[in-house]
Structures are given as structure tokens and as C-alpha cells.
Design a binder for these strands. Structure first.
Lengths: 247, 247
DNA sequence: CAGTTTTCTGCAATTTCATGCAAAAAAATT
DNA sequence: AATTTTTTTGCATGAAATTGCAGAAAACTG
């Protein structure tokens, strides 16, 4: 059995049962537990499953019960503070989901008049709390692992929008561009970038100069990048050369 | 059972009951009390629960003066418990929003396979937490007052569905039928009733035999009504005459 | 205050994990 | 087809995690 096959099998089992034990998989597939462990680690690195002592859990399981505290919440709050001034009255704004975006939504001034489009349930929920913001939810089918709407419905609706700004939380960026690892999410993000006049990406510094398997866009499609670091940090030199504003 | 699973189970129990005893958990999960205690300590360290002598309390319960309590939460939980058995595997279910529905969503067994359609952001959010439930969000424009999707988009999408069940939280019901006071919400509810084979209405007893300004539907379109009271209560006599099952 | 229950501590048995290494398998190259 | 390079796998080792248990300490009850 090929490695890829095996990992596909593991993913399917986790989808089916929401949990699996390394020892069970080992006897089922007839490989050593070490191999299983390595597979599980790889899948966990790709954010496809949650690895725990003794086996692994599906991501939806995790999000439901174990939602832990937000990773690097302080950094994310800092980033959120830097985004808010970019948002002006009467703008049409496309956003993704993610904890940084949620943080931003909470910081929006209550007298702000704007229209927000999002496919993320938590984000929509947050926007809906604000008195003067109009919220449009994009898409119908909700992907559980990412809690956002995915699929053709979402994409085509995004295509019908001409937004002023796209504010996107990202998972990895390096000199080749922005990358991610969930195919469905990427389709949505690509469409969002196309539909917006300007694109702002939000990322904690830890993710800068890392990359993942699937490409979202090149650096030339990004207008602004915001991290928790000072814009003068040398980390950003190469991005500035590509004409990206660092905040 | 994996440690992580066990802790998830504990958290869920605490969410549900607001308090639990170490000894109960020990016999339920079949591990030593020491293990439970260690779990509770870990969860308390993570600030997810409040550990007390003999067991633990839910954090939201303990710091409840911060959160707005749900009105008649106990009644609503009772209602929710009565709804759950109506939901079977592979059903297509339309639901509204509202605190009772949210409560129901939390009680859905984790092995339930079903597809839920809703226009309510909080409800969609809750459904999305479940491992085996597919969530379809209806509509795009979100009405802030009710936190649900309203307007033509929502209505037309509902029209395209043939659901097994419509589960609807209502604000008023009397012998003339179900009434409400938000015109946009009513359009959505009407469409939902049309699109479902059977309609179940949920209401706290306080709202029975009251009415509001705008009509949603007559009693003949209702199949089942659920309140927190015993079905034999004389309050329901006239509804039974209209062929409505009381639970 | 006496008796019961719960908690804490240290400990031992078991399981699971990470790491380095060498053999095997697969892929790429000549 | 043969050979080199890369990837993958299994195993051994020691480290770390998990769990249950015993006995002392602490908390609770009436």
C-alpha cells in the first residue's frame, strides 16, 4: 500500500468515525505503529486532523469541544488594530474568517457605516452585532472544518461583487506568494481577491516566509500586509520590493 | 477512550448540566476517580471549568452575571429534549433560529446524520459544531434585529427545498393560528412551512393563547406543538381538536 | 468533634512518543 | 537496464505520558 493511499484511508476513517487509534490503524493496514504515527503527524501538520496521545480526532470534533484559547491572541489584536483605520464609511468589504478577522470585527467603531461580505459564520455573527454594518453572507454549504461557506454557490456570488477591499487572514506567505492547504478554501480566497479592488492580508509574523502546498496568489496581487511587527522590520524587505505596503 | 475524548465528554456534560460530580463521571466513563480529578484539574488550569470540591461547575454558569441569561432557559431545555427524538437519520430539516433551537442543536446526538437548513447565524454556527451534520445556510442579507437571513434570496432558496421537517420557534399561537410581529421574518417562516412535509412548532407555555399583529399560518398547517408543560394539560384542548399533536 | 468523603502525593506498570539508524522500496538518472 | 538518489519503513532506545493505587492530608457533614 502506498503512503498516499494509506493517508487517504486514514483520513476517510477519521471522517467516518471522528476518531481513530494508532494501534487500530496499525493492525488494520498492517504497518508498524511508527509509520502510522508519522502519517498522523504529517496529516496534523497539514491541519487535516488533530493528533492526540494515542490516535487522532477529526477537526470538527476538535472545534466543537476543545476549542482552546486563541493562539497568539495578543498579536492578533495588534494586527486587528492596524486594520481598522483602513476601513472607511460606505465601503464594500470582503473578508474571510479566522480569529484575526473576528478580533477586527470587534474593534470596528460603532459609527462605521459599511457593508461586509463574508462566508464565515463566526465573522458574520460578529458583524451582525454591530449597529451600522450591513452583513451579506456568501454561499450556502458550510464546510465544517473551516466553518466557512465553500463551493460553487459561494464562488459565483463572490464573482458578482465589486468590493473596495478584501481583508484576508492567511496561513502562509513567502516570496512566491500566498499559499494554503485546503483546496476548497483556496477557491473562495482566489475569488475574493479577484472581486476586490485592493487586497489586505493579515498574518502573524510566524507565518511570514513559510509556505504550504497550494497557491492562492502571487505577491503582485497583494496591496498591503499587516503583521504584529513594526513595518521597519528587515523581515519585510523583499515584500516591500514587490510594492507591498507593510503596516 | 482517548484522554482528549474524555475531556471533551466532560466539557460537554458540564455545558449541558452546568455541574457534575467526579464520582458520577468516574462510573459513567469507567475510569478511576483519580483520572477524572486529573482531567478536571487540567480543564480548570485551562480556564474551561471551575473546579470545586467533589466535582466541577460550568464557567458560564459561575460567571453568569456577565452573560445575559436566557429567559426561561430551563423550560427551553425541556422543550429541546422533547424535539430531539423527532429527528432521524438522513432527514432534511428546516429550522428557524431562537434560543430554543440553539438549545436543541446542542442536544443532538453526535452520531446523528442529517442535513439542516437554516437562515439563522447562531443556529448555523451551532449545527456546524456537530461532527455529522451538514449545514446549508439560506439567504444572504442578514437582518440584524433577528440575526437571520431575510429577503427574496432566502425565500427563493427555501422554495427550492423539499424538507421532511420544519422546526420553528414561535412567538405567539392561539386558536386562529401562529402570529408574529416582524414582517420580514414572517415571509421566511411562511416559506419554511410550505417547503416542509411536517411542521413542528416550539413555544414556551407563556406564549400559548397569545397573538400578535401578523399571521404566519393557521392551526391546520401545524402538525406538532411542543411546550415545557405536560401534553395532558387542559391548556391544549382546543389545539388537540385541530389535530395537533402535543408533546 | 468524629466520621466520611475528597484530594494530593509519590510510585509503579503500561502505553505511547521521538529519534537515529540501517534496510528496503520507489523514483530519478544515466 | 543499471545505477544513483531520494523516500519510506521498521526497529531499538530512551524519554514522556497516562493511569491506577495506596496512604496521608485536607475538606466537608451533621
Amino acid at each position: 500500500m502506498l503512503k498516499t493511499e494509506r493517508q487517504a484511508y486514514i483520513l476517510r476513517q477519521i471522517d467516518l468515525h471522528n476518531r481513530i487509534l494508532s494501534s487500530d490503524l496499525s493492525t488494520e493496514i498492517n504497518v508498524s505503529e511508527d509509520t502510522i504515527r508519522r502519517d498522523l503527524n504529517e496529516l496534523a501538520d497539514m491541519d487535516k486532523i488533530i493528533k492526540v496521545h494515542g490516535g487522532a480526532l477529526s477537526k470538527s470534533f476538535h472545534s466543537s469541544f476543545l476549542k482552546s484559547d486563541v493562539y497568539k491572541a495578543d498579536s492578533k489584536r495588534l494586527i486587528a488594530q492596524k486594520v481598522v483605520p483602513l476601513i472607511r464609511n460606505n465601503m464594500f468589504i470582503l473578508t474571510t474568517g479566522g480569529t484575526t478577522i473576528i478580533e477586527m470585527a470587534r474593534l470596528l467603531p460603532s459609527d462605521l457605516n459599511a457593508t461586509f461580505f463574508t462566508g464565515s459564520i463566526p465573522a458574520a455573527h460578529e458583524y451582525a452585532q454591530h449597529p451600522n454594518i450591513e452583513v451579506i453572507f456568501l454561499g450556502d454549504k458550510i464546510s465544517k472544518s473551516s466553518q466557512i461557506a465553500v463551493g460553487g454557490e459561494a464562488i459565483s456570488k463572490i464573482g458578482g461583487i465589486k468590493a473596495d477591499l478584501c481583508i484576508m487572514g492567511i496561513n502562509a506567505i513567502d516570496e512566491t506568494g500566498v499559499t494554503d492547504n485546503d483546496w476548497e478554501v483556496i477557491q473562495v480566497k482566489k475569488a475574493m481577491i479577484q472581486a476586490a479592488e485592493k487586497t489586505v492580508v493579515l498574518s502573524i509574523a510566524e507565518k511570514v516566509n513559510t509556505h504550504q502546498k497550494l497557491m492562492i496568489c502571487g505577491l503582485d496581487e497583494i496591496d498591503t500586509m499587516i503583521t504584529e511587527l513594526d513595518p521597519s522590520n528587515p523581515l519585510f524587505e523583499s515584500y516591500k520590493k514587490h510594492g507591498i505596503t507593510i503596516l
